[in-house]
Nucleic acid binder design. Structure first.
Length: 478
RNA sequence: CGGGGCGUGGCGCAGUCCGGCUAGCGCGCUUGCAUGGGGUGCAAGAGGUCGGAGGUUCAAAUCCUCUCGCCCCGACCA
């Protein structure tokens, strides 16, 4: 650690973000522009995110598979909106084995096309449906401007691709996945999200309808934390995914796709992080409990270490733990170090604790005295479990309170322009592209989503004053 | 692609405008001793040819030309 103090969020939020990512050793810049190296600590967090999602996918009948990294260029061209959406950001392989290729290969920016092609081979009958496949993969999009985790040329994600016999079923799948995502975000990541429909402008290239969950970051900007798309029959028609139904009639299938990426790591960092660094949600944190032994000399050490070992053995059965037995740094250094890395709970065990038969605990989510408590040896596991549960709850509550305090219901357009500088506006919108575009032009705020949860009734479009039947969130976004 | 900034030991920087002895400083690193309940102290060490190429000059980190790369801001985007 070259400098000791982090830049504070108030001083410069994006600088704070970069420093936290680098100094907590989540990720590092790579020799390739726009690409990052995800370091073991960051990858461990991602692995926990993966497991958390994967469990839910499996529980809802999905299976995993792996499709090729390379996609023939012609495949992308089969769906008009899709190719138009992605063309500017494709990485294309033109040579292989020293030879110019007959047809250039695109490094997948997303896999609807190649998976759609395979589905056309596999699906012949209504009995073959639904197909519910997910893949964990890396994809490449040649972005102009990149940020660690939030936007990199290459990123990791899961992409689910499903095919169904009916429109209703495919729409239900799209929605079911969004519910699953939102459940993951709130229950495991302690990230409050707003699920809703994307506007026509903001929807996925080639989709009939996109839905997303939006989260508010610590600077009040919005981050799309997961998307689910209803493709209608667009891709089925482009790739000839057809089946014979019960009445022996040939039909196009209805498809969906949905994804959560390593960007979610950024969402966790910016939802919970503070001026001391990361604050990781207990259910996903690579290390849930760090134990710092405190010993002034060898005599202390001989008393403290056996106790630490015993505690570590016991807690290790139920929690992801780490004993920081480094002798070259002081306890104070370790406290700051693990706070930077966002470990939810720290236990201190020193001669004084042992004398009193207690363990000192410090919560990451509550700095200073407020987060300190003493635990007892005989009930340690239960007490730690309870604390981690409380930490999760208080992290969620804090994030939700922050978000709600920064959502406004502006009374007119002038007020909207003002509130989106430091929050989200929740306003009636007539649904027209023109109003949306004007608002974006004036404020840089875009429609984030039209939430499923609506107040009901009618109002007037915040921009044009025309009758509106729905409210939308407008915000500056990552 | 437009605007801005920056490339000097592992990291962060000073030195560049007004060329000049063996290129400094802080952190980190190594070793030793002490220390250890909120970012330890002292001491001794190791480590750079100044992004790259060309040029000007007795002399270039410093001036000139070209070039490569990165970061930040904007338009585009998970």
């Amino acid at each position: 650690m070259a400098e000791e103090k982090l830049t504070t969020q108030a001083e410069n939020y994006s600088e704070w973000y970069n420093q936290v990512v680098l100094r907590a050793e989540m990720a590092d810049y790579s020799p390739v522009r726009g690409c990052m190296v995800i370091r073991p600590y960051g990858w461990a967090l991602w692995e926990n995110i993966q497991q958390s999602l994967d469990r839910r996918f499996k529980a809802t009948g999905h299976v995993n598979a792996a499709f090729p990294l390379f996609i023939p260029m012609s495949f992308l061209e089969k769906e008009k909106e899709h190719v138009e959406g992605f063309a500017p950001e494709l990485a294309v392989v033109t040579h292989g084995g020293g030879q110019k290729l007959e047809e250039p290969l695109v490094v997948r920016p997303t896999s609807e096309t190649i998976i759609g092609y395979m589905y056309s081979q596999w699906i012949k009958s209504y009995r073959d449906l639904p197909v519910l496949i997910n893949q964990w993969a890396n994809v490449v999009r040649w972005e102009m401007r990149t940020r660690l985790f939030l936007r990199t040329l290459e990123f990791y994600w899961q992409e689910g691709h499903t095919a169904h016999a009916t429109e209703e079923e495919a729409r239900a799948e799209t929605r079911r996945i969004m519910d699953l995502y939102a459940n993951f975000a709130m229950v495991d990541a302690a990230v409050p999200v707003v699920p809703g429909r994307k506007s026509e402008t903001e929807k996925f290239a080639g989709a009939v309808q996109s839905i997303s969950m939006e989260a508010m970051m610590g600077d009040t900007k919005a981050l799309q934390a997961g998307t689910s798309h209803f493709m209608g029959q667009n891709f089925a028609k482009a790739f000839d995914i057809k089946f014979l139904d019960q009445n022996n009639i040939l039909q196009h299938a209805w498809t969906t796709s949905w994804g959560v990426s390593t960007r979610f790591v950024g969402a966790i960092i910016m939802t919970h992080g503070d001026d001391h660094g990361l604050v990781l949600p207990p259910k996903l944190a690579p290390i849930q409990v760090v134990i710092v032994p405190i010993a002034r000399n060898d005599a202390d050490r001989s008393i403290v270490m056996p106790v630490v070992e015993q505690v570590a053995n016991e807690l290790g059965l139920n929690f992801r733990i780490k004993v920081d037995d480094r002798s070259e740094v002081t306890p104070g250094f370790k406290f700051n170090d693990w706070e930077l890395r966002g470990v939810p709970l720290r236990l201190e065990i020193g001669p004084k604790d042992i004398e009193k038969g207690v363990v000192t605990a410090a919560r990451r989510d509550k700095p200073g005295r407020e987060g300190k408590s003493t635990l007892t040896f005989d009930q340690l596991s239960a007490q730690v479990a309870e604390l981690l549960t409380e930490i999760h709850a208080s992290m969620y509550d804090k994030a939700e309170a922050f978000r709600d305090a920064h959502i406004f219901d502006p009374k007119d357009y002038d007020e909207l322009k003002e509130v989106v500088q430091n929050g989200w506006a929740f306003s009636w919108w007539c649904g027209s592209k023109e109003c949306e575009a004007k608002i974006k032009e004036d404020t840089k705020a875009t429609t984030r989503c039209i939430p499923f949860q609506q107040p009901g009734g009618h109002g007037q479009c915040i921009y044009c004053g025309q009758p509106a039947s729905e409210k939308a969130y407008f915000a500056r976004a990552y």
